[in-house]
Simulated assay, not measured.
Amino acid sequence: MTSQNPVFIPGPTNMPEAVRLACHVPTMDHRSPAFAEILHPCLDGVRTVLKSETAEIFIFPSTGTGGWEAAITNTLSPGDRVLVGRNGMFSHRWIDMCRRHGLDVQVIEVPWGHGLPADAYEAALREGDVKAVLATHNETATGVVSDIAAIRRATDAAGSDALLLVDGVSSIGSMDFRMDEWGVDVAVTGSQKGFMLPAGLAIVGFSEKAMAATRAAKLPRTFFDVGDMAKGYAGGAYPYTPPVGLMNGLRVSLDMLLSEGLENVFARHHRMAEGVRRAVDAWGLDLCAASPEVQSDSVSAIRTPEGFDATEIVTVAARDYDMAFGVGLGEVAGKVFRIGHLGMLTDAMMLSGLATAEMVMADLGLDVTLGSGVAAAQAFYRHGGKQQKAAA
């Protein structure tokens, strides 16, 4: 009886049983009023999670990558200049997508482990006409969060009217995201992380400014056309066959998140993350995140000693202990392993992951004392974590 549950990868995340069961629905006429009763609560719930009053929400049968494509194809035209910071694997992939779509991509190179520099965005924006600024809120490969509000302030300070497109795939639903307050024009996420569902839904929010841009945008789109989607939504349906089961699961997931209270959800993720950070410190290891202010509350990328292949930790954990951690990607492949602490997690679940990581590192000969990281996390969860719960 082996199983990789709970998993400690940064997505897909552990599924609550209620959400899993909600995905298993009988066949439904997706053009009937019954489907509209699933669709509209999903749209309203996502808007609430994004902390937006006016965003148009679109939910495609896809993943976060499809959400990226929807963001650029609906708002931009061939040859448009976009400005984007590269500080990890997922920002790199968005850059690659923009180039494949014939956009003029100006890249701000940022050391992996650092947040996106608002001052560099401002300087670049002062130099030329930029149609859109792209930013990754939470870089999943390095466990680094960036200040999106600061990038909007930099855009405004440069006198630019560029759209702000934000990848929130590994942050939205787990960490505070303020679409209206931060001036985000398109927010992109997916179902398999903070929303605790299987992969299969690309979830995007468009501001009024972004919706206006769709009327002039000339990049080709069909499947991801938000105009077609909006027309379908008006009648309580999709322009094509929707993933009814996943949508019903999203409806239940949103009910759970909003019943817990968004601020409580964010506090819980911070508590999980802080316990992991205490454990990493006790092990004598470092995070990939270069400073505390950029440490992610949804995933920690943990550096291993020079010359050690961090991927071995992931391999041995899966082989010997039936537990899943994340490998390093891109420039940090083999240099870090990742612990995801988002979605459906409790203190006790997190401790099991930390205990397993310790056993694996000891098995592989790293100088890690069994129980050291677990004890450090326990001390926080018992004291600092309890105070955090009480405040919430």
Results as ranks from 00 to 15, higher is better:
residue 1 M to F: 06
residue 9 I to S: 10
residue 9 I to L: 08
residue 10 P to D: 07
residue 18 A to K: 14
residue 19 V to E: 00
residue 20 R to Q: 14
residue 21 L to Y: 01
residue 29 D to W: 10
residue 38 I to G: 03
residue 39 L to M: 14
residue 41 P to K: 10
residue 42 C to V: 00
residue 42 C to Y: 01
residue 43 L to I: 11
residue 49 V to G: 04
residue 49 V to P: 03
residue 49 V to S: 11
residue 51 K to F: 03
residue 58 F to I: 01
residue 60 F to W: 13
residue 61 P to L: 11
residue 62 S to M: 07
residue 66 G to Q: 09
residue 67 G to L: 10
residue 73 T to Y: 01
residue 74 N to T: 01
residue 75 T to C: 14
residue 80 D to C: 09
residue 84 V to H: 10
residue 85 G to L: 04
residue 86 R to Q: 13
residue 87 N to C: 13
residue 88 G to P: 10
residue 90 F to Q: 12
residue 97 M to N: 06
residue 100 R to N: 12
residue 102 G to Q: 12
residue 106 Q to H: 13
residue 112 W to C: 11
residue 113 G to D: 10
residue 126 R to T: 03
residue 128 G to F: 00
residue 129 D to K: 13
residue 130 V to L: 11
residue 141 A to N: 05
residue 141 A to Y: 08
residue 143 G to C: 07
residue 145 V to W: 01
residue 146 S to C: 06
residue 154 A to E: 07
residue 162 A to V: 06
residue 162 A to I: 10
residue 165 L to I: 15
residue 165 L to V: 15
residue 172 I to R: 02
residue 180 D to A: 01
residue 181 E to R: 14
residue 190 G to M: 06
residue 199 A to F: 00
residue 200 G to K: 00
residue 201 L to K: 03
residue 202 A to V: 02
residue 203 I to D: 00
residue 209 K to M: 00
residue 211 M to I: 05
residue 214 T to V: 10
residue 217 A to G: 13
residue 220 P to L: 01
residue 222 T to V: 05
residue 226 V to L: 01
residue 229 M to N: 04
residue 230 A to L: 15
residue 232 G to K: 03
residue 236 G to E: 06
residue 247 M to F: 14
residue 248 N to I: 04
residue 256 M to C: 08
residue 261 G to C: 11
residue 263 E to W: 04
residue 264 N to Y: 01
residue 266 F to K: 05
residue 267 A to S: 10
residue 273 A to N: 03
residue 273 A to W: 04
residue 279 A to E: 05
residue 284 G to K: 12
residue 288 C to F: 02
residue 288 C to W: 03
residue 288 C to N: 05
residue 295 Q to Y: 00
residue 296 S to I: 07
residue 307 G to K: 09
residue 308 F to A: 06
residue 310 A to S: 06
residue 312 E to M: 11
residue 316 V to N: 04
residue 321 Y to I: 03
residue 324 A to I: 07
residue 329 L to K: 10
residue 329 L to G: 00
residue 330 G to E: 13
residue 330 G to K: 06
residue 331 E to Q: 14
residue 340 G to K: 06
residue 342 L to C: 13
residue 346 T to Y: 11
residue 351 L to C: 09
residue 351 L to T: 12
residue 358 E to A: 13
residue 359 M to D: 11
residue 361 M to T: 07
residue 362 A to T: 13
residue 364 L to V: 08
residue 365 G to I: 08
residue 373 G to F: 07
residue 377 A to T: 13
residue 382 R to S: 12
residue 382 R to E: 15
residue 392 A to L: 04
